[in-house]
Amino acid sequence: MYPAPFRYHRAESVAEAIGMLSELGEGARALAGGQSLLVLLKIRFDEPTDLVDLARIPGLDAIEQRDGEVRIGALATHARIARSEIAAAIPIVRDCANGIADNQVRSRGTIGGNLCSGDPSCDWPALLTTLDAQVHCEGPAGKRSLPVDGFVEDLYATALQEGEIVTGVSFALPGPGSAGAYVGFKRCAPAYPTTSVGVQLTLSGADCVDARIALGSSGLTPIHATAAEAELRGQTLGEAVIRRAAEAAVAASDPIDDQRGSPAFKRRLIDTLVRRGIDVARRRCAGEQVEVSHEYY
């Protein structure tokens, strides 16, 4: 299987990429690692006239932490993020980066591509929503930053305007007493998750000062489970509180019926994963070392 013919353009700078994408118009697609895009092209689901390769643009793959803020360039691969000091310091980032697909896909796939594909099965949009991240974009109208919550607007549709690209993402370094977990379930390593859940808690003892919960592969877009957060915030974490949060997360989901499972199965899974995510986040808040990632058979 190979894609339908397209013209290939290699951008050497962000400005050149924006110029090319704007000029080439709606038949053009931006190419980063290609781990989502090439799959769509090979099944001829999409037949663009032109690909603009962003992968050689210098400086877009930096992973850095400065003044309490973490910044990850759009071209940083999942594998590099997983091996970074950021991932060592923030376990929820490691959970997600290591959980995506397999070693080979993580070598090529980028955080920017994962975010921009708009595929509801992608993990970074849900993880970044859990961390309340900002998406940094640059286009013909200049630079802007958007909250990641809502960036993926619909199936394969994002807030990006014509000619606009994502240059990076940023989020606040979780403070003391704050920790999270990103847990998912998939049928095997290379498969997309059946569902996945991100939980970030800020605790004072057993009291939940703040909570953020987002769901991946649980509907047509990433889902920010605000009602589930509200069940936790200001509460002492106990069995009943956690049950209500899991129920609220399930209620916020709208899983599709596909080969990965029925909606009923996926709802049960979301319930389990929210509870597990809360459990791991809570233990990490208490300083315990816990290794989790996507589980598979």
């Binding site: 099944i43 689901f45 596909d258 080969q259």
Partner: peptide, 14 residues
């Protein structure tokens, strides 16, 4: 076809 194998679950909502 291939679309069904790869994205069958999306056909109904779309």
């Amino acid at each position: 076809g291939k679309l069904v194998a790869l994205a069958g679950g999306l056909i109904r909502p779309v």
